[in-house]
Simulated scan of single mutants.
Amino acid sequence: MTDLSSFPVARRWPAQHPDRLQLYSFPTPNGVKVSILLEETGLPYEAHTVNIGKDETWTPEFLSLNPNGKIPAILDPDGPGGRPLALFESGAILLYLAEKTGRFLPADPAARYETIQWVMWQMGGVGPMFGQLGFFHKFAGAAYEDKRPRDRYAKESARLLRVLEARLEGRDWIMGADYTIADIALLGWVRGFVGFYGAGDLVAYDELTNVPAWLARGLARPAVQRGLEIPARPA
């Protein structure tokens, strides 16, 4: 049996199945990227809830896995060369799992890099901008009398959504006919933006047609539906 006892994170969140990939996460837009991909691939894994509401990402055990103190992170007992691999950053994890399973990342080099560029676009633009708008619209920032920060992020979020709208013209998925990690990286963020953040009106989301249709296609996938709820939120 695989022994993960040398990893502090595994001592705080013990593995019931140490031979499986271990996921340490929370069902946020970044967290569900990995759980959706794991559900899509069927790769055996074990999910552990890291309660960000209780600052569990800042515990010594989690920081030993991710010194940046953010979910998601994984510990794969069967990493490259058969050795355990600890990995953080959702985009890096998506690339690793896609390559490990040979799925959701095109084999053709040009298409592969085109897919990766859209993953990076999500990480560098959509995630930060949507997240900041969520803060200034729904969370503590909503109480700020000065609405210029909110409006700044709303303007940029609207622009990014229209980049996606243009990309999806005539396409079912970001890469055309093939569903890839580019879609997986974005689904949770767009869903959360219009649902959880309730920011659709700020960016005239109802004026879009391609993005809502793409989102509906993605949310109809059974693996996406499962992944959006993994790991379970604390009771």
Rank of each mutant, 00 (worst) to 15 (best):
L94K: 03
L228W: 06
P231R: 07
L219F: 04
L160K: 02
D151A: 14
H17C: 05
A182R: 11
Y153F: 14
G227K: 06
L187K: 09
R233Q: 02
S6E: 08
P212F: 08
G200N: 02
G131K: 11
G125M: 01
L21I: 08
R159L: 09
L186M: 15
E46V: 15
W121C: 11
A213D: 14
K138V: 05
G192P: 12
F139W: 09
L161W: 04
P128M: 05
W13G: 00
G31Y: 01
L161H: 03
R167F: 10
K33A: 13
F130G: 01
A15L: 12
T2S: 13
G124A: 15
A223D: 14
D76L: 01
I181K: 07
A204K: 01
W214Y: 01
H17M: 00
A199W: 12
A10E: 03
E114G: 13
A158V: 09
R150F: 05
D172V: 03
A110K: 14
R217C: 00
E46I: 15
D172F: 04
I36W: 04
L95T: 03
A158M: 03
D55H: 09
L160C: 01
G81D: 01
L168R: 03
S6C: 09
N66M: 12
T41M: 07
W58P: 00
T180L: 08
L160N: 00
Y45I: 05
F136G: 02
A166M: 11
A98V: 03
Q132K: 02
L160Q: 05
T57M: 02
G141I: 14
A213K: 15
W121S: 01
F7W: 12
